[in-house]
């Protein structure tokens, strides 16, 4: 081993250690609010408030107990809300994958009139924040037809308020998802389609058997990105869901803001509803992180 390579190695090692130090310092910045949340969820209100200005806020010391968690379960039907959120999220994401990827396929690989216009309109809708159309939306969904089973008979009725589907259907189609699929699909060689066409495959088959299986990373990316807003739905269910049995988790936050806020319970509840997301993310993180990378999202 020569002196030169030894020096180079040394430099590289120092560089590596430097990287770890920097990355760890940054990691602390990204983690501390969450640590604060988990730790506070174990403390009584008064102690949370008195610890807040000191490093004690991050250390489970003092009067530590699960009291807040019991309080949460007394106040809020946690299980029910979790179930609702899981249901709404899974359906929104699942149906969204299908609908948006089909649209992306049509927009990226098929020639039809109006395609360019449609794509521009879809992209333009990205600029609409939901808050600005929430009010017209409430009027609108309250007029939509629906099927109800009443006394064993299937009937027509109007008004989508107070249901699961009102929390799902408006959010299935997603401009951003369509855009991502369109981008990703257009990177898959078109020669594959032609070959399959010659073999007599229908477009639908090409989509399902050739293009979709090659687009795993795009599906994974869209799944995670649509999972988050669906889980965190707040303003919308607050306006359109009346029965407690149908409420999602974020609305449950409001249960703790009474005349005086039970901060310990707020922290316990936020911990409880953040945990599933973290678990989902942690278990898929490898696939997700590499799939975003592989999907090579581009402008």
């Amino acid at each position: 081993m020569t002196a030169a390579t030894l020096g180079e190695r040394d430099v590289r090692r120092r560089h590596k250690i430097g990287s770890y130090v920097v990355m760890s310092a940054i990691a602390v910045i990204f983690l501390f609010p969450l640590v604060f949340m988990f730790v506070s969820s174990l403390k009584p209100d008064a102690q949370i408030l008195s610890d807040v200005g000191s490093p004690r806020a991050f250390i489970p010391v003092g009067d530590i107990s699960l009291e807040n968690y019991f309080g949460v379960f007394d106040r809020v039907p946690v299980g029910r809300f979790l179930f609702n959120s899981i249901l709404v999220t899974v359906l929104t994401v699942g149906l969204g994958l299908i609908v948006n990827s089909m649209a992306g396929f049509a927009l990226s690989r098929l020639r039809w009139r109006g395609r360019v216009l449609v794509l521009s309109v879809v992209i333009a809708t990205l600029i609409v924040p939901f808050e600005t159309i929430a009010v017209p939306m409430v009027y609108w969904v309250s007029k939509l037809p629906t099927l109800v089973v009443e006394g064993g008979v299937l009937k027509y009725d109007f008004g989508w308020l107070n249901s699961y589907h009102v929390q799902i259907v408006p959010f299935i189609a997603n401009a951003f998802s369509i855009f991502l699929f369109t981008q990703y699909f257009s990177t898959i060689p078109k020669s594959l389609d032609e070959a399959a066409r010659i073999d007599g495959a229908s477009w639908f088959t090409i989509y399902r058997r050739i293009v979709a299986p090659l687009a795993g990373p795009a599906f994974a990316t869209v799944a995670i990105l649509t999972f988050l807003p669906a889980w965190n739905q707040y303003l919308w269910p607050l306006m359109v869901v009346q029965q407690e049995e149908l409420r999602p988790v974020m609305v449950g936050m409001q249960y703790f803001f009474q005349l005086n806020t039970a901060w310990g319970e707020v922290m316990a509840y936020t911990s409880l509803i953040t945990l599933p997301v973290l678990l989902v993310f942690l278990s898929f993180q490898r696939a997700f992180v590499s799939s975003v990378a592989a999907s090579g999202v581009k402008g």
């Binding site: 249901l87 359906l91 149906l95 107070n162 399902r208 058997r209 979709a212 299986p213 149908l246």
Partner: peptide, 25 residues
């Protein structure tokens, strides 16, 4: 994403959406 899992998503989603439309109302 393989075929089987897609098919599962489809059928599960449609089925439960139908059921929920009925009972969620």
């Amino acid at each position: 994403m393989n075929r089987r899992s897609l098919a599962t998503i489809v059928s599960a989603s449609t089925a439960s959406a139908l059921v929920l439309t009925g009972c969620g109302q």
